[in-house]
Design a protein around this nucleic acid. Structure first.
Lengths: 222, 222
DNA sequence: CGTTTTTTTGAAAAGTATCAAGAGAAGTGG
DNA sequence: CCACTTCTCTTGATACTTTTCAAAAAAACG
């Protein structure tokens, strides 16, 4: 409980109060936590594992909007709108989720510290989407995403920085809204530039993080 | 005061309390309200007129992120981060702005109704960016933007629906992150399809709003 | 170790950006 | 109100990037 960022810094009593209302639930890898069109009953906090929020376009393509991992929350839309979920949330691995019904979470909002944390988190999501929005070309977007994944999932190991990717190439493509093959091509290019090196399909060896950061930041591209 | 959505439904006393702390300021069309890199002193609410939030890329291109009009707020980032503004806010017309210092607004967050309104507004911005993100092609994005502008600025007049655009063609291009010329071409196509008709450079006659909505919504594009 | 799935690579097609010129609208002063 | 200037917008031709389709290579899985 205490390690949930949303509730950090609360008193023992408050935490107990919240804990009594939390519904713990486990989901197997691949299962749907919230389906498109489901009514969202409240907020959900990821305890263990990874989930993706995505939409399915009429032509069958998947569009990934968010990756949520330990400590992240979703379903906050239920706070202010009583309608169906605009996207689906699926487990990328076995996950443990803490659910809190809308009414219970709404009470918590009376605590300004919690309200501020929700606002801050939404602000971060906005900042991320803003930075991907607009005129970004792929030679920035892909390094930007790789950098993000590196900072979130990267590990120093046997003298190198390795990232175990939570997404397949197709997943990356669906996250960026581009074609699978384009991801392959751009990664190949980054490999021949000596920036990264794929190790199997699910791991990336980041050989030059600084170069990645340079490519990702449009301001440095003068 | 009462017509500011953020503060609607508050008691007379509360409103008076807020009003006493608000700093009113006028800005001429074209002036910079918050410059890139400025420290953001607090939140700002648009009282009259239009503003745009934008970034300038190293190559000189402008990237418009938001249009704010009467009742909208910006600078909420100051609530949770004490750093420089990631974008610039400029007046698209003569505007009147209500400023509220960070500390004053932070106090207001103790009111859950206000916190919820901020969360709800950020949620709307997220939903908008989400819908533009990813795999959208231009033949959806442009109708989607036109529809948005229609709903915000459209007026029934002499037997037709007319929109006075707050942005030039170049502004629209910078909003969508595409080339000026592409906007022209797509609008011309919509004109020959009988959906819209430009009236001068600043007004659009929406001849078939339903068609626009059909083009804008990917779910209906089956 | 063979089978299945995923990824990579190649070639052609589609879409958008860019460059360049011309048309049109808006603003100014007579 | 008109003519002139300036700015914005439109249109055309070409170049570039990404998508799509197809096949081969590599990785993952039982």
């Amino acid at each position: 409980m205490q390690q949930i960022p949303l509730f950090s810094g609360m008193t023992r009593t408050e935490l107990g109060e919240i804990a009594s209302r939390i519904i713990h639930r486990d989901y197997a890898k691949g299962s749907v936590i919230i389906g498109t069109g489901d009514r969202v009953p409240g907020i959900a906090i990821v305890n263990t594992g990874e989930v993706k929020a995505c939409r399915y376009l009429p032509d069958g393509r998947e569009q990934i909007l968010y990756l949520f991992s330990e400590g992240d929350f979703f379903g906050e839309r239920s706070l202010y709108r009583d309608d169906d979920s605009p996207y689906q949330v699926e487990a990328l691995s076995d996950v443990k989720i803490c659910h809190l019904y809308r009414a219970d979470f709404q009470e918590l909002l009376a605590n300004p510290a919690i309200a501020l944390r929700v606002i801050s988190e939404l602000g971060k999501r906005l900042a991320r989407l803003e930075s991907f929005a607009g005129s970004q070309d792929l030679d920035q977007q892909i390094p930007q995403l790789l950098l993000e994944l590196t900072d979130k999932y990267g590990r120093e190991q046997s003298g190198g920085l390795f990232v175990r990717l939570p997404l397949s190439r197709e997943g990356i493509a669906n996250y960026l809204g581009i074609a699978r093959e384009t991801v392959s091509r751009k990664l190949s290019q980054l490999e021949s530039d000596g920036v990264i090196r794929p190790v199997g399909n699910k791991t990336l060896w980041i050989r030059d993080r600084a170069a990645l950061a340079r490519l990702a930041d449009p301001l440095s591209k003068i």
